[in-house]
Nucleic acid binder design. Structure first.
Lengths: 229, 229
DNA sequence: AAATGTGAAGAGGTTCACAGCG
DNA sequence: CGCTGTGAACCTCTTCACATTT
Protein backbone atom coordinates (compact mmCIF):
# COMPACT_ATOMS: atom_id res chain seq x y z
CA UNK A 1 0.00 0.00 0.00
CA UNK A 2 2.04 2.90 -1.17
CA UNK A 3 -0.37 5.66 -0.39
CA UNK A 4 0.65 8.99 -1.80
CA UNK A 5 -1.81 11.14 0.09
CA UNK A 6 -2.41 14.80 -0.39
CA UNK A 7 1.16 15.66 -1.33
CA UNK A 8 1.86 19.00 0.28
CA UNK A 9 -1.31 20.89 0.97
CA UNK A 10 -0.72 23.52 3.60
CA UNK A 11 -2.21 21.90 6.64
CA UNK A 12 -2.21 24.17 9.63
CA UNK A 13 -2.25 21.67 12.48
CA UNK A 14 -5.84 20.67 12.98
CA UNK A 15 -5.83 19.90 16.64
CA UNK A 16 -4.09 21.44 19.57
CA UNK A 17 -3.64 18.94 22.33
CA UNK A 18 -2.25 21.29 24.89
CA UNK A 19 -3.55 24.81 24.37
CA UNK A 20 -1.09 26.35 26.78
CA UNK A 21 2.53 25.48 26.10
CA UNK A 22 2.22 23.47 29.25
CA UNK A 23 5.09 21.94 31.10
CA UNK A 24 5.43 18.21 30.95
CA UNK A 25 6.49 16.64 34.18
CA UNK A 26 7.05 12.99 34.78
CA UNK A 27 5.86 12.18 38.29
CA UNK A 28 7.18 8.64 38.69
CA UNK A 29 10.65 9.93 37.93
CA UNK A 30 10.34 12.86 40.29
CA UNK A 31 9.38 10.39 42.97
CA UNK A 32 12.52 8.38 42.27
CA UNK A 33 14.61 11.51 42.62
CA UNK A 34 12.90 12.25 45.89
CA UNK A 35 13.77 8.83 47.18
CA UNK A 36 17.36 9.21 46.04
CA UNK A 37 17.53 12.50 47.91
CA UNK A 38 16.09 10.93 51.05
CA UNK A 39 18.82 8.32 50.95
CA UNK A 40 21.43 11.01 50.48
CA UNK A 41 20.16 12.92 53.47
CA UNK A 42 20.41 9.77 55.52
CA UNK A 43 24.02 9.42 54.46
CA UNK A 44 24.74 13.00 55.37
CA UNK A 45 25.32 14.21 51.83
CA UNK A 46 24.33 17.84 51.31
CA UNK A 47 25.18 18.47 47.68
CA UNK A 48 24.59 16.27 44.64
CA UNK A 49 25.31 16.72 40.97
CA UNK A 50 22.83 15.60 38.35
CA UNK A 51 25.27 12.84 37.48
CA UNK A 52 25.41 11.54 41.03
CA UNK A 53 21.65 11.67 41.46
CA UNK A 54 21.17 9.84 38.18
CA UNK A 55 23.58 7.18 39.38
CA UNK A 56 21.69 6.76 42.60
CA UNK A 57 18.32 6.44 40.94
CA UNK A 58 19.68 3.69 38.79
CA UNK A 59 20.04 2.53 35.28
CA UNK A 60 18.06 4.06 32.49
CA UNK A 61 18.08 7.63 33.73
CA UNK A 62 20.75 9.97 32.43
CA UNK A 63 22.11 13.08 34.06
CA UNK A 64 20.67 15.11 31.21
CA UNK A 65 17.26 13.68 32.01
CA UNK A 66 17.66 14.67 35.63
CA UNK A 67 18.61 18.21 34.73
CA UNK A 68 15.77 18.54 32.23
CA UNK A 69 13.23 17.26 34.73
CA UNK A 70 14.44 19.46 37.54
CA UNK A 71 14.88 22.59 35.48
CA UNK A 72 11.17 22.51 34.71
CA UNK A 73 10.44 23.19 38.36
CA UNK A 74 12.54 26.32 38.40
CA UNK A 75 16.19 27.08 38.99
CA UNK A 76 16.99 24.59 41.71
CA UNK A 77 20.68 23.95 41.35
CA UNK A 78 23.82 26.03 41.56
CA UNK A 79 25.95 26.03 38.47
CA UNK A 80 29.36 24.64 39.05
CA UNK A 81 28.19 23.04 42.28
CA UNK A 82 25.11 20.84 41.97
CA UNK A 83 21.84 20.60 43.84
CA UNK A 84 21.22 21.30 47.50
CA UNK A 85 19.92 17.97 48.73
CA UNK A 86 17.61 19.18 51.47
CA UNK A 87 16.21 22.09 49.52
CA UNK A 88 15.55 20.02 46.45
CA UNK A 89 13.96 17.25 48.48
CA UNK A 90 11.60 19.75 50.10
CA UNK A 91 10.62 21.17 46.77
CA UNK A 92 9.95 17.76 45.25
CA UNK A 93 8.16 16.66 48.38
CA UNK A 94 5.85 19.63 48.13
CA UNK A 95 5.15 18.93 44.50
CA UNK A 96 4.46 15.27 45.16
CA UNK A 97 2.23 16.01 48.10
CA UNK A 98 4.66 14.48 50.56
CA UNK A 99 4.86 17.52 52.78
CA UNK A 100 1.76 16.60 54.68
CA UNK A 101 -0.01 13.52 55.95
CA UNK A 102 -2.78 11.70 54.13
CA UNK A 103 -5.55 9.56 55.42
CA UNK A 104 -6.56 6.56 53.37
CA UNK A 105 -9.68 4.41 53.35
CA UNK A 106 -9.20 0.76 52.50
CA UNK A 107 -12.14 -1.09 51.00
CA UNK A 108 -11.75 -4.85 51.03
CA UNK A 109 -9.78 -6.18 53.94
CA UNK A 110 -8.57 -9.55 52.76
CA UNK A 111 -4.91 -10.47 52.56
CA UNK A 112 -4.19 -7.69 50.14
CA UNK A 113 -5.96 -5.13 52.29
CA UNK A 114 -4.03 -6.31 55.32
CA UNK A 115 -0.77 -6.16 53.41
CA UNK A 116 -1.42 -2.60 52.30
CA UNK A 117 -2.55 -1.46 55.70
CA UNK A 118 0.60 -2.82 57.30
CA UNK A 119 2.78 -1.37 54.60
CA UNK A 120 1.23 2.08 54.86
CA UNK A 121 1.07 2.27 58.61
CA UNK A 122 4.58 1.06 59.29
CA UNK A 123 6.68 1.84 56.25
CA UNK A 124 5.22 5.06 54.97
CA UNK A 125 5.01 7.71 57.60
CA UNK A 126 3.05 10.12 55.43
CA UNK A 127 0.15 7.76 54.92
CA UNK A 128 -2.30 6.65 57.57
CA UNK A 129 -5.22 4.31 57.58
CA UNK A 130 -8.30 6.41 58.25
CA UNK A 131 -10.94 3.77 57.70
CA UNK A 132 -11.41 0.13 56.76
CA UNK A 133 -14.43 -1.43 55.08
CA UNK A 134 -15.29 -5.03 54.38
CA UNK A 135 -18.38 -7.12 53.92
CA UNK A 136 -17.28 -10.10 56.00
CA UNK A 137 -19.50 -10.19 59.13
CA UNK A 138 -16.73 -11.72 61.18
CA UNK A 139 -14.48 -8.75 60.45
CA UNK A 140 -17.02 -5.96 60.76
CA UNK A 141 -17.02 -4.39 64.19
CA UNK A 142 -13.50 -5.50 65.03
CA UNK A 143 -10.51 -3.22 64.94
CA UNK A 144 -7.18 -3.29 63.19
CA UNK A 145 -4.53 -1.50 65.21
CA UNK A 146 -7.14 0.82 66.57
CA UNK A 147 -8.95 1.42 63.31
CA UNK A 148 -12.55 0.29 63.30
CA UNK A 149 -13.61 -2.04 60.50
CA UNK A 150 -17.02 -1.04 59.14
CA UNK A 151 -19.39 -2.79 56.80
CA UNK A 152 -19.15 -1.71 53.19
CA UNK A 153 -22.88 -0.99 53.27
CA UNK A 154 -22.30 1.67 55.90
CA UNK A 155 -19.75 3.56 53.86
CA UNK A 156 -21.99 6.55 53.26
CA UNK A 157 -22.71 6.82 56.97
CA UNK A 158 -19.19 6.30 58.25
CA UNK A 159 -16.70 7.51 55.67
CA UNK A 160 -17.48 11.22 55.49
CA UNK A 161 -16.47 11.69 59.11
CA UNK A 162 -13.14 9.92 58.66
CA UNK A 163 -11.50 12.72 56.68
CA UNK A 164 -9.93 10.43 54.12
CA UNK A 165 -8.90 11.85 50.79
CA UNK A 166 -7.70 8.67 49.13
CA UNK A 167 -9.16 5.22 48.73
CA UNK A 168 -7.64 1.82 48.07
CA UNK A 169 -9.88 -0.71 46.35
CA UNK A 170 -9.01 -4.36 46.93
CA UNK A 171 -12.41 -5.94 46.41
CA UNK A 172 -13.28 -8.60 43.82
CA UNK A 173 -13.50 -7.30 40.24
CA UNK A 174 -17.29 -7.35 40.01
CA UNK A 175 -17.64 -5.12 43.06
CA UNK A 176 -14.94 -2.66 42.14
CA UNK A 177 -16.94 -0.27 39.97
CA UNK A 178 -19.71 0.11 42.53
CA UNK A 179 -17.28 0.58 45.40
CA UNK A 180 -15.35 3.15 43.41
CA UNK A 181 -18.49 5.11 42.63
CA UNK A 182 -19.55 5.14 46.24
CA UNK A 183 -16.11 6.24 47.42
CA UNK A 184 -16.26 9.03 44.89
CA UNK A 185 -19.70 10.05 46.07
CA UNK A 186 -18.30 10.28 49.59
CA UNK A 187 -15.78 12.84 48.42
CA UNK A 188 -12.75 10.64 47.85
CA UNK A 189 -10.63 12.27 45.17
CA UNK A 190 -8.04 9.61 44.36
CA UNK A 191 -8.17 5.84 44.08
CA UNK A 192 -5.61 3.09 43.97
CA UNK A 193 -7.33 0.16 42.32
CA UNK A 194 -6.17 -3.46 42.41
CA UNK A 195 -9.12 -4.91 40.57
CA UNK A 196 -8.48 -5.72 36.91
CA UNK A 197 -11.32 -3.46 35.89
CA UNK A 198 -11.46 -0.29 33.89
CA UNK A 199 -13.16 2.01 36.36
CA UNK A 200 -15.46 4.59 34.82
CA UNK A 201 -15.38 7.62 37.06
CA UNK A 202 -15.83 11.37 36.72
CA UNK A 203 -12.77 13.11 35.37
CA UNK A 204 -11.98 14.87 38.62
CA UNK A 205 -11.10 11.60 40.33
CA UNK A 206 -7.52 10.40 39.94
CA UNK A 207 -7.24 6.67 39.46
CA UNK A 208 -4.27 4.38 39.28
CA UNK A 209 -4.76 0.72 38.62
CA UNK A 210 -2.28 -1.98 39.52
CA UNK A 211 -2.99 -4.98 37.37
CA UNK A 212 -1.09 -8.01 38.61
CA UNK A 213 -2.19 -10.28 35.81
CA UNK A 214 -0.91 -7.79 33.30
CA UNK A 215 2.46 -7.53 35.02
CA UNK A 216 2.86 -11.28 35.10
CA UNK A 217 1.88 -11.61 31.52
CA UNK A 218 4.51 -9.12 30.47
CA UNK A 219 7.07 -11.19 32.34
CA UNK A 220 6.01 -14.38 30.61
CA UNK A 221 6.52 -12.69 27.30
CA UNK A 222 10.04 -11.78 28.33
CA UNK A 223 10.70 -15.34 29.37
CA UNK A 224 9.76 -16.50 25.92
CA UNK A 225 11.84 -14.10 23.98
CA UNK A 226 15.14 -12.79 25.20
CA UNK A 227 13.71 -9.29 25.38
CA UNK A 228 14.54 -6.79 28.06
CA UNK A 229 12.13 -4.40 29.69
CA UNK B 1 20.42 31.30 26.99
CA UNK B 2 19.96 31.69 23.31
CA UNK B 3 22.46 29.13 22.18
CA UNK B 4 22.98 29.14 18.46
CA UNK B 5 25.00 25.94 18.28
CA UNK B 6 26.62 24.43 15.29
CA UNK B 7 24.06 25.62 12.74
CA UNK B 8 23.80 22.85 10.21
CA UNK B 9 26.81 20.61 10.24
CA UNK B 10 25.96 17.27 8.71
CA UNK B 11 25.68 15.06 11.74
CA UNK B 12 25.22 11.45 10.86
CA UNK B 13 23.50 10.13 13.97
CA UNK B 14 26.21 9.18 16.42
CA UNK B 15 24.53 6.35 18.19
CA UNK B 16 22.20 3.65 17.04
CA UNK B 17 19.88 2.56 19.78
CA UNK B 18 18.28 -0.28 17.92
CA UNK B 19 20.60 -1.79 15.32
CA UNK B 20 17.83 -3.70 13.63
CA UNK B 21 14.89 -1.60 12.54
CA UNK B 22 13.07 -3.48 15.21
CA UNK B 23 9.35 -3.62 15.66
CA UNK B 24 7.97 -1.74 18.59
CA UNK B 25 5.27 -3.56 20.43
CA UNK B 26 3.55 -2.35 23.52
CA UNK B 27 2.89 -5.32 25.76
CA UNK B 28 0.62 -3.77 28.35
CA UNK B 29 -1.70 -2.70 25.59
CA UNK B 30 -1.65 -6.08 23.90
CA UNK B 31 -2.60 -7.58 27.21
CA UNK B 32 -5.58 -5.24 27.44
CA UNK B 33 -6.69 -6.31 24.00
CA UNK B 34 -6.37 -9.92 25.05
CA UNK B 35 -8.61 -9.31 28.02
CA UNK B 36 -11.13 -7.48 25.88
CA UNK B 37 -11.19 -10.44 23.53
CA UNK B 38 -11.65 -12.88 26.41
CA UNK B 39 -14.68 -10.90 27.50
CA UNK B 40 -16.04 -10.93 23.98
CA UNK B 41 -15.67 -14.67 23.75
CA UNK B 42 -17.59 -15.01 26.97
CA UNK B 43 -20.37 -12.92 25.47
CA UNK B 44 -20.41 -15.06 22.37
CA UNK B 45 -19.11 -12.37 20.04
CA UNK B 46 -17.08 -13.76 17.17
CA UNK B 47 -16.15 -10.68 15.20
CA UNK B 48 -14.95 -7.30 16.43
CA UNK B 49 -13.92 -4.14 14.64
CA UNK B 50 -10.97 -2.10 15.83
CA UNK B 51 -13.45 0.51 16.95
CA UNK B 52 -15.41 -1.93 19.08
CA UNK B 53 -12.29 -3.39 20.63
CA UNK B 54 -10.99 0.06 21.43
CA UNK B 55 -14.30 0.87 23.08
CA UNK B 56 -14.09 -2.25 25.20
CA UNK B 57 -10.56 -1.60 26.34
CA UNK B 58 -11.58 1.81 27.47
CA UNK B 59 -10.77 5.44 27.17
CA UNK B 60 -7.46 6.61 25.90
CA UNK B 61 -7.01 3.98 23.23
CA UNK B 62 -8.16 4.83 19.73
CA UNK B 63 -9.21 2.46 17.00
CA UNK B 64 -6.20 3.62 14.98
CA UNK B 65 -3.98 2.58 17.85
CA UNK B 66 -5.58 -0.84 17.93
CA UNK B 67 -5.10 -1.31 14.22
CA UNK B 68 -1.51 -0.13 14.34
CA UNK B 69 -0.68 -2.43 17.24
CA UNK B 70 -2.32 -5.45 15.70
CA UNK B 71 -1.02 -4.93 12.21
CA UNK B 72 2.52 -5.26 13.56
CA UNK B 73 1.80 -8.88 14.35
CA UNK B 74 0.78 -9.69 10.83
CA UNK B 75 -2.44 -9.50 8.83
CA UNK B 76 -4.94 -10.51 11.47
CA UNK B 77 -8.15 -8.87 10.41
CA UNK B 78 -10.46 -9.06 7.45
CA UNK B 79 -11.01 -5.81 5.63
CA UNK B 80 -14.60 -4.77 5.62
CA UNK B 81 -15.34 -7.17 8.46
CA UNK B 82 -13.11 -6.83 11.49
CA UNK B 83 -11.09 -9.25 13.58
CA UNK B 84 -11.88 -12.87 14.32
CA UNK B 85 -12.14 -12.85 18.08
CA UNK B 86 -10.96 -16.37 18.81
CA UNK B 87 -8.14 -16.35 16.30
CA UNK B 88 -6.84 -13.00 17.44
CA UNK B 89 -7.03 -14.00 21.08
CA UNK B 90 -5.00 -17.13 20.38
CA UNK B 91 -2.37 -15.15 18.56
CA UNK B 92 -2.07 -12.57 21.31
CA UNK B 93 -2.11 -15.27 23.95
CA UNK B 94 0.80 -17.00 22.28
CA UNK B 95 2.73 -13.76 22.07
CA UNK B 96 2.08 -12.95 25.70
CA UNK B 97 2.99 -16.41 26.87
CA UNK B 98 -0.56 -17.19 27.92
CA UNK B 99 -0.84 -20.36 25.88
CA UNK B 100 0.81 -22.44 28.51
CA UNK B 101 1.00 -22.70 32.29
CA UNK B 102 3.66 -21.12 34.46
CA UNK B 103 4.94 -22.08 37.85
CA UNK B 104 5.84 -19.30 40.21
CA UNK B 105 7.94 -19.22 43.36
CA UNK B 106 6.87 -16.79 46.05
CA UNK B 107 9.53 -15.53 48.43
CA UNK B 108 8.14 -13.82 51.50
CA UNK B 109 4.86 -15.22 52.67
CA UNK B 110 3.36 -12.43 54.72
CA UNK B 111 0.03 -10.84 53.93
CA UNK B 112 1.19 -9.74 50.52
CA UNK B 113 2.53 -13.18 49.70
CA UNK B 114 -0.73 -14.74 50.79
CA UNK B 115 -2.70 -12.27 48.75
CA UNK B 116 -0.70 -13.01 45.63
CA UNK B 117 -0.82 -16.74 46.13
CA UNK B 118 -4.59 -16.67 46.46
CA UNK B 119 -4.96 -14.38 43.50
CA UNK B 120 -2.77 -16.50 41.27
CA UNK B 121 -4.13 -19.85 42.29
CA UNK B 122 -7.80 -18.96 42.06
CA UNK B 123 -8.15 -16.10 39.62
CA UNK B 124 -5.46 -16.77 37.08
CA UNK B 125 -5.63 -20.23 35.68
CA UNK B 126 -2.38 -19.93 33.77
CA UNK B 127 -0.30 -19.30 36.86
CA UNK B 128 0.41 -21.79 39.61
CA UNK B 129 2.29 -21.60 42.84
CA UNK B 130 5.26 -23.92 42.52
CA UNK B 131 7.04 -23.04 45.73
CA UNK B 132 6.83 -20.81 48.77
CA UNK B 133 9.72 -19.51 50.87
CA UNK B 134 9.76 -17.61 54.12
CA UNK B 135 12.06 -17.16 57.07
CA UNK B 136 9.40 -17.38 59.79
CA UNK B 137 9.98 -20.65 61.70
CA UNK B 138 6.30 -20.98 62.47
CA UNK B 139 5.49 -21.01 58.76
CA UNK B 140 8.33 -23.18 57.52
CA UNK B 141 7.34 -26.80 57.19
CA UNK B 142 3.63 -26.07 56.90
CA UNK B 143 1.71 -26.16 53.67
CA UNK B 144 -0.45 -23.68 51.82
CA UNK B 145 -3.09 -25.45 49.79
CA UNK B 146 -0.77 -28.35 49.28
CA UNK B 147 2.34 -26.30 48.56
CA UNK B 148 5.15 -26.81 51.04
CA UNK B 149 6.59 -23.69 52.66
CA UNK B 150 10.38 -23.89 52.82
CA UNK B 151 12.92 -21.78 54.62
CA UNK B 152 14.51 -19.08 52.52
CA UNK B 153 17.91 -20.48 53.47
CA UNK B 154 17.04 -23.73 51.72
CA UNK B 155 16.21 -22.08 48.45
CA UNK B 156 19.23 -23.48 46.62
CA UNK B 157 18.37 -26.99 47.79
CA UNK B 158 14.63 -26.87 47.15
CA UNK B 159 13.90 -24.49 44.33
CA UNK B 160 15.68 -26.15 41.39
CA UNK B 161 13.42 -29.19 41.65
CA UNK B 162 10.25 -27.12 41.63
CA UNK B 163 10.42 -26.16 37.96
CA UNK B 164 9.50 -22.56 38.52
CA UNK B 165 10.39 -20.00 35.88
CA UNK B 166 9.17 -16.87 37.62
CA UNK B 167 9.65 -15.47 41.09
CA UNK B 168 7.66 -13.01 43.17
CA UNK B 169 9.62 -11.06 45.78
CA UNK B 170 7.62 -9.75 48.72
CA UNK B 171 10.35 -9.57 51.33
CA UNK B 172 11.46 -6.43 53.21
CA UNK B 173 13.49 -3.98 51.13
CA UNK B 174 16.85 -4.80 52.68
CA UNK B 175 16.50 -8.48 51.84
CA UNK B 176 15.23 -7.99 48.30
CA UNK B 177 18.52 -7.70 46.45
CA UNK B 178 19.96 -10.82 48.03
CA UNK B 179 16.79 -12.83 47.47
CA UNK B 180 16.65 -11.69 43.87
CA UNK B 181 20.25 -12.73 43.26
CA UNK B 182 19.65 -16.15 44.75
CA UNK B 183 16.50 -16.68 42.72
CA UNK B 184 18.44 -15.75 39.63
CA UNK B 185 21.22 -18.16 40.54
CA UNK B 186 18.61 -20.91 40.80
CA UNK B 187 17.62 -20.29 37.21
CA UNK B 188 14.63 -18.02 37.66
CA UNK B 189 14.35 -15.84 34.58
CA UNK B 190 11.71 -13.28 35.55
CA UNK B 191 10.90 -11.44 38.75
CA UNK B 192 7.97 -9.46 40.03
CA UNK B 193 9.34 -7.25 42.77
CA UNK B 194 7.30 -5.47 45.42
CA UNK B 195 10.22 -4.06 47.35
CA UNK B 196 10.97 -0.38 46.70
CA UNK B 197 14.49 -1.28 45.65
CA UNK B 198 16.33 -0.92 42.39
CA UNK B 199 17.39 -4.52 41.85
CA UNK B 200 20.73 -4.97 40.13
CA UNK B 201 20.57 -8.17 38.16
CA UNK B 202 22.12 -9.62 35.02
CA UNK B 203 20.51 -8.37 31.86
CA UNK B 204 18.98 -11.71 30.97
CA UNK B 205 16.59 -11.52 33.93
CA UNK B 206 13.33 -9.68 33.35
CA UNK B 207 12.24 -7.59 36.30
CA UNK B 208 9.12 -5.62 36.97
CA UNK B 209 8.82 -3.61 40.12
CA UNK B 210 5.56 -2.53 41.67
CA UNK B 211 6.23 0.42 43.90
CA UNK B 212 3.25 1.18 46.07
CA UNK B 213 4.72 4.26 47.67
CA UNK B 214 5.35 5.71 44.26
CA UNK B 215 1.79 5.04 43.12
CA UNK B 216 0.36 6.70 46.20
CA UNK B 217 2.61 9.66 45.83
CA UNK B 218 1.45 10.19 42.27
CA UNK B 219 -2.11 10.19 43.55
CA UNK B 220 -1.37 12.75 46.21
CA UNK B 221 0.04 15.02 43.57
CA UNK B 222 -3.18 14.71 41.62
CA UNK B 223 -5.17 15.52 44.71
CA UNK B 224 -3.24 18.73 45.08
CA UNK B 225 -3.57 19.93 41.59
CA UNK B 226 -6.56 19.22 39.42
CA UNK B 227 -4.45 17.18 37.03
CA UNK B 228 -5.58 14.04 35.31
CA UNK B 229 -3.51 10.98 34.69
C1' DA C 1 36.75 25.03 36.20
C1' DA C 2 32.72 22.69 36.91
C1' DA C 3 28.11 21.74 36.61
C1' DT C 4 23.51 23.71 35.60
C1' DG C 5 20.00 25.09 32.31
C1' DT C 6 18.39 24.81 27.70
C1' DG C 7 17.69 25.31 22.48
C1' DA C 8 17.99 22.00 18.99
C1' DA C 9 18.38 17.45 17.15
C1' DG C 10 16.94 12.85 17.52
C1' DA C 11 14.06 8.97 18.50
C1' DG C 12 9.81 6.92 19.68
C1' DG C 13 5.19 6.56 19.74
C1' DT C 14 0.37 8.26 18.22
C1' DT C 15 -2.97 10.10 15.05
C1' DC C 16 -4.49 11.13 10.45
C1' DA C 17 -6.35 10.02 6.28
C1' DC C 18 -6.46 7.28 2.61
C1' DA C 19 -5.11 3.30 -0.29
C1' DG C 20 -6.35 -1.46 -0.60
C1' DC C 21 -9.18 -5.24 -0.23
C1' DG C 22 -13.03 -8.20 1.18
C1' DC D 1 -19.74 0.07 0.98
C1' DG D 2 -16.92 -0.86 5.41
C1' DC D 3 -13.12 -1.80 7.73
C1' DT D 4 -8.24 -3.04 7.84
C1' DG D 5 -3.54 -1.87 7.05
C1' DT D 6 -0.20 1.79 6.61
C1' DG D 7 2.83 5.78 4.99
C1' DA D 8 3.23 10.30 6.44
C1' DA D 9 2.38 13.90 9.66
C1' DC D 10 2.37 15.00 14.17
C1' DC D 11 3.39 15.17 18.87
C1' DT D 12 6.00 13.95 22.94
C1' DC D 13 9.95 12.67 25.25
C1' DT D 14 15.06 12.00 25.42
C1' DT D 15 19.67 13.11 24.35
C1' DC D 16 23.16 16.18 22.77
C1' DA D 17 26.14 19.89 23.19
C1' DC D 18 27.05 24.25 24.54
C1' DA D 19 26.17 28.89 26.43
C1' DT D 20 25.70 30.50 31.03
C1' DT D 21 26.54 31.12 35.71
C1' DT D 22 28.66 30.48 40.17
Amino acid sequence: MKSARKPAAAKPSRRVLRPEGAAVINLPRLFLYHRGLEDSVREGITLLTSEELAGRVGRGISSAQVRKDLSRLGPLGRRGQGYNVVGLMRKLGRLLGLDRDWRIAIVGFGYLGHALAGFLEYREEKFHIGGIFDSDPSLVGTRWHGVRISHVDDMEKVLPALECSMGVVTVPPDAAQSVAERLTACGIGALLNFAPTKLKLPARVAVRTIDLASELSILTHHLRRGLRD
